[in-house]
Design a protein around this nucleic acid. Structure first.
Length: 483
RNA sequence: GGUCGGGUGGCCGAGUGGCUAGGCAGAGGUCUGCAAAACCUUUUACAGCGGUUCGAAUCCGCUCCUGACCUCCA
């Protein structure tokens, strides 16, 4: 298996440090407002990666943090705390904000059928670990305190290490393009970033530390929590591409400065979801909320789309490509998703024959694994699954045959990839009761058809269509599915 | 300005040198009481110009367009 590593900008063979164990850390959300669809894409992408690693038999420890402290409005190390600001606006405690949006985040990800991470640590729950790490960074000479605030000395660090290894930029360029230090600045270098920030009196989220009553800078939490749960060096560190230049660059520097080791061997970055070619983001005001998508309550949408249709839409693009969001594209995915799932449902009804006609199951299986082994190429995997889908339909129509052994293999293959790896699920409330009801309705209609009472049979068919149930007349039987 | 990406048929989106993904939409057909679904067949591509090569969407150069990051953001 190969994975694309941002560190080297190439696909590399994936070799875990301690197989069969894999340590995976993904930067989670900052829970001061609703997650939008762009955020969801990243977590769905890593869900695919997590699921495939599990499928291959790796014992994965998947750590995804919740950032619930340390983010400030605006840049630099000043400005209001995002949680405190939101709390003021909503007239809640900061921790009520954290709880509210954490629950919302979990609800949304559950709808998208993502597996929960093994550990979901919070920044506020790991203040002491962050303080310890800062102490060590200072001890190692890469951090300094000024008036209760601790900064990371980027210029000193970059004399010994490649600070911008992730983005390949020259330090001089970074310096040129970073705002000059102002008269009130207390840090030494303009690239220096805060590890610990002394709280102003109005800053209500604060903790005691050796330097001041304050709060951690926003990069240190991931370094502290990843090393706590995955060790000083682990396999994969992931996150959205937008985090690479600043957040991940600083994480690497912190870990090097503290532990003298680069934290992760493979850095994986997921690309952005765009709307009309522009990145979806809260600040742009073009962020879709999952709820708007599911209900269709948005000017750009014709109707609501189910979470699984949206998941499928995302899986149809590779995680490192931008994906453009539009009503038209969603509609296409929705139909494709239903087609795939319909054929998966048909698998149970297939009858085995003596031989399998013109279909190489082993080849299909190899292609599926090859697709995923090539940096988790889900769109290619889906293309392969649609080949299987066509074959399944063809067998169901009696135009192809499948042997009993191949049928078992095909069921296993489709089950593995559609449900376990891609994480798609059947939708709708097709309960046992409903199945029995439909059986009854279909048998009544079949009786009408048998007596050529087409008025009645069409009435039933049309009425069902109106409530979103589609009947499909086969030669021998009638099947149904939700629209 | 710097760094890194993109520009693929009506739409979305794979594909890094030859074997012309896939989904949706369009056209024709089979099946059907009629439909739908399904199946079969099928049309429209690789931003532009030049170069390398027996052969390029794929490699190289130039041009144009466009995105992300460089300040909080998955």
């Amino acid at each position: 298996m190969v994975v694309y590593n941002t560190l080297t900008r190439t696909k590399e063979a994936f070799e875990p440090l301690n197989p069969p164990f894999v340590g995976l850390y993904v930067c989670g959300p900052t829970v001061y407002s609703d997650v939008h669809l762009g955020n969801c894409r990243t977590f769905i992408s890593f869900d695919l990666i997590y699921r495939y690693l599990l499928h291959l038999g790796y014992k994965v420890r998947y750590v995804r943090n919740i950032t619930d402290a340390g983010h400030l409005e605006g840049d630099r190390d000043e400005g209001e705390d995002k949680f405190a600001k939101k709390a003021r606006l909503e007239q809640l405690e900061p921790m009520e904000i954290v709880q509210k949006y954490t629950l919302g985040f979990h609800d949304v990800l559950r709808l998208f059928n993502t597996l929960p991470p093994s550990i979901e640590p919070t920044a506020t729950g790991h203040i002491s670990e962050q303080i310890e790490m800062i102490k060590q960074i200072i001890k190692n000479g890469y951090g300094y305190e000024v008036n209760g605030t601790v900064y990371f000395d980027v210029e000193k660090y970059s004399k010994e290490y490649n600070y911008s290894i992730l983005t390949n930029r020259q330090l001089e360029d970074l310096l040129e393009n970073t705002r000059a230090l102002g008269g009130q600045d207390e840090k030494r270098g303009r690239l220096d970033f805060a590890l610990w920030i002394k709280a102003k009196p109005e800053h209500i989220m604060n903790w005691p530390s050796p330097w001041s009553v304050g709060f951690p800078g926003w990069h240190i939490e991931c370094s502290a929590m990843s090393s706590k749960y995955l060790g000083e060096q682990f396999d994969i560190h992931g996150g959205g591409m937008d985090l690479a230049a600043t957040h991940h660059t600083n994480e690497i520097a912190q870990s090097q400065a503290c532990n003298h080791t680069t934290p992760a061997r493979y850095w994986m970055h997921t690309n952005m979801l765009t709307v009309n070619g522009t990145r979806m983001s809260k600040s742009m005001g073009n962020g879709f909320l999952p709820g708007e998508l599911f209900t269709g309550n948005h000017p750009l949408l014709n109707h609501g789309y189910s979470p699984m249709a949206v998941r499928f839409f995302m899986l149809q693009a590779h995680y490192r490509s931008t994906l453009d969001f539009s009503n038209e594209a969603l509609e296409a995915s929705e139909k494709g998703f239903r087609r795939l799932m319909a054929s998966v449902t048909l698998l149970d009804k297939l009858k085995a024959s003596e031989t399998t006609s013109e279909f190489n199951l082993a080849e299909l299986s190899d292609s599926c694994y090859a697709a995923m082994n090539d940096d988790f190429n889900s769109p290619v995997l889906l293309a392969e699954l649609f080949e299987a889908s066509r074959f399944i339909n063809s067998v169901y129509d009696g135009k192809s045959t499948i042997s009993s052994a191949d049928l078992d293999s095909l069921r296993k293959l489709m089950n593995d990839f559609v449900f376990d790896v891609l994480g798609l699920t059947e939708e709708g409330n097709q309960t046992e009761d409903m199945g029995k009801l439909m059986e009854l309705i279909i048998s009544l209609r079949s009786e009408a058809k048998a007596t050529k009472d087409y008025a009645t049979s069409d009435k039933i068919r049309n009425a069902l269509q109106a409530i979103g149930i589609q009947l499909k007349d086969n030669k021998e039987e009638t099947s149904w599915s939700k629209l």
